[in-house]
Design a protein around this nucleic acid. Structure first.
Lengths: 139, 139
DNA sequence: GTGATTGCAAATCTTTTGCACTAAA
DNA sequence: TTTAGTGCAAAAGATTTGCAATCAC
C-alpha cells in the first residue's frame, strides 16, 4: 500500500516526460493527477489553480495542457466544437457526454466494444477510435 | 428514373422544413444537396458560394447551417475543437477523420457495429452514439 | 550565466449578435 | 403591408503568439 506522496509523484511524472519541473507545472500536475480521473477545460483548471492560491497564467495553463498531452500524460477529448476537454485517464476507454451540463463520464474500455471495425482507407492507419455516447436528462 | 430538378428539389426541402425559400437558402441548399454526401465547414461553404458567384454573407451561412441542422437536413459532426463540420448525410453512420488534411469520410452504418453498449447513467437517455476513427497517413 | 519557461497583452480564429435594410408572402 | 430573413460590422469566446522578465539548472 503506497503512501501519499503528491509532491514526488508530480515531480516524477514531469521528470519522466522530460519537462522541467517548474512551480507552475508542478502545481497543475498536482491538481490534475492527485485524486481520481478528471476531465477539465483550460478555463476550469485555471480557475481551480487560482482558487488554490496557485499563481498561474491562463497562457501557461494552455501550454502545460498541451505539453502534458504530447507527453502522453493527458488525452484530449473532442465532444464540442469550441471547447477542448482534457482527460487524465489515458487508458483505452470511451465517454458519455452529458449534453445538459457539458460533463464527461468515462466508460471503461471493457464495457464497450466495437464489433466490426472497417479497414482504414488505403494508405492510412488507425490512430485512435473514439466513441462518444451523447446522453440527455437531468441525471 | 427521376430527372434532375435541382431547383424544385431544393425548394421542396426548404418548404418541407418550414423555411422560407429565400435566394440565399436556395443557393446554399443547392450547393449542399446537389451531388453526393458532403462534409463542410461554414467557411468552406461560404467560399464555395462566392466562387459560384452567389452573394451570401458568412453570417447567413452560419444561420442557414444551423437552421438546416435543426430541421434535420444536416448533421453536425464534432471532430476538432474549434471548427464545426456539417454532414449532408443524416442517416445512421460514422466517420473516418483524416488527421493529415482534416477531411471526413463516411462509414456506412452497417460497416461498423458497436457490440456492447453500456446502459446510460441513471436518469439519462441516449441521444446519439458517435464513432470517430482517426486515421493518419497520406492516403 | 544560459537557455527554458512564464506572464501579459495583443493578435487570431471561429462563431454569434444587434440592428437597419431587404425581400418573401 | 407585415414579418421573416439578410448583411454588415462589432462583440464574444477560446486559443495562440510575441517578447521582455524570471526561473531552473
Amino acid at each position: 500500500m503506497p503512501e501519499h506522496r503528491p509532491y514526488s509523484r508530480a515531480l516524477d511524472r514531469l521528470k519522466a516526460a522530460g519537462l522541467r519541473p517548474t512551480r507552475q507545472r508542478m502545481a497543475l500536475a498536482k491538481l490534475l493527477f492527485d485524486g481520481g480521473d478528471r476531465h477539465v477545460t483550460a478555463e476550469q483548471l485555471h480557475e481551480q489553480a487560482l482558487d488554490a492560491a496557485m499563481r498561474v497564467s491562463l497562457a501557461t495553463v494552455y501550454n502545460a495542457l498541451h505539453q502534458f498531452t504530447s507527453a502522453g500524460m493527458l488525452r484530449e477529448v473532442v465532444v464540442e466544437s469550441g471547447r477542448a476537454y482534457f482527460d487524465t485517464n489515458t487508458s483505452d476507454h470511451h465517454h458519455f457526454y452529458h449534453v445538459a451540463d457539458g460533463k464527461l463520464e468515462d466508460i471503461a474500455g471493457d464495457r464497450l466494444a466495437v464489433a466490426t471495425l472497417p479497414p482504414p482507407p488505403a494508405g492510412t492507419s488507425i490512430e485512435r477510435v473514439d466513441v462518444i455516447i451523447r446522453v440527455k436528462g437531468e441525471r
